[in-house]
Design a protein around this nucleic acid. Structure first.
Lengths: 181, 181
DNA sequence: ACCTGAACACCGTTCAAGT
DNA sequence: ACCTGAACACCGTTCAAGT
């Protein structure tokens, strides 16, 4: 006897919790249903299929990242903070990277983050196409780091690698800014 | 009536073919068995489980990458070629990145490639820990690029992004070499 | 040593039927 | 509108039994 009908918000929250607790392999629509006090089939009234459920969860977690004001401490610090925050988020949700690699590239939660990162690059002095490329380079590198982190690898050494690679990228970008007219 | 007993080599080859043709989602042990003219259970005589099958396939494809002599055309060219070749390989086998994200980080096929990339970094002048970090930075970036490439995104623009990001990283690494005693 | 057939405990998804 | 129960067509894996 459900007090209130299910809704998508509720489902997404349950999926994230289940993925965090059990991992991506053991997520089933049946288990998801039962966590919601309903049957698997009930979930299908609210979502199209399992893939949609994963897409929703994979986008929701991006909203956990707090976006700070870009005025003040310089673009290198801003980009570094954003990269570290994204990295920390991928560590909280180890299922995210595998889930994203199979599904939906562009969704609003992720777009929110990417827009802010791009703004940080524009604040640094990049414009147009180059701002886009700088944004993508940083994002791509953090994804690659998260990707290399699954099971086994020492987390400490990966954090250091992240820092090293990020410095290298920022130095390279700085060089491009300096070479501008 | 099998002429000859199955072997692992044969199984790995069949898995790669199946993954290339059908994608990772539709790989099943039953289908794999039937492609080999056998039953799913027969495969279990040769491998532990489905995960091992994926690990073997995910390592085998690294051997497709040809490794060139490092003498001659400079470290930037060498690293760029290696990055492009790895990238091309991930495009031939789009199932690889998702498969790797869940399974076994270090296997001989991959190690063979990484060792050569590290040698290229050492030829550039990096030593010890820094050579390791430089290697990992490049590798991480190519993984990130491959990761961002699944379904939808224009391949042309991603190739250009790869080139841009790689330049940025090489510039950043160059700066570190120049700042050496 | 190597393989088959059948079974177990699961899946995702659909769909009539209920309220 | 929203949910259940039962069913369909699949899974991965195990294991006795065959050769």
């Amino acid at each position: 006897m459900p007090r209130k009908a299910l809704n998508r918000e509720q489902i997404v929250q349950a999926v994230v919790g289940l993925l965090d607790a059990e991992g991506a392999d053991s997520l089933s629509m049946r288990q998801l249903g039962s966590r919601l006090g309903a049957t698997a089939a009930a979930v299908y009234w609210h979502v199209k299929d399992k893939e949609e459920v994963l897409v929703l969860a994979a986008d929701a977690v991006w909203r956990e990242i707090q976006l700070h004001d870009l005025e003040g401490s310089g673009w290198r610090a801003a980009v570094t903070t954003m990269a570290n925050d994204l990295h920390a988020m991928t560590l909280r949700h180890p299922w995210l990277v595998p889930a994203m690699s199979c599904h939906a590239p562009h969704a609003p939660g992720r777009a929110r983050y990417e827009d802010h990162l791009r703004a940080a690059c524009e604040a640094a002095g990049f414009t147009g196409r180059e701002a886009e490329q700088a944004t993508k380079t940083v994002l791509t590198f953090v994804f690659g780091t998260a990707f290399g982190e699954h099971k086994g690898e020492a987390t400490a050494s990966t954090a250091e690698d992240l820092a090293f690679g990020l410095q290298v990228i920022l130095d390279g970008l700085q060089g491009r800014l300096d070479a501008r007219p």
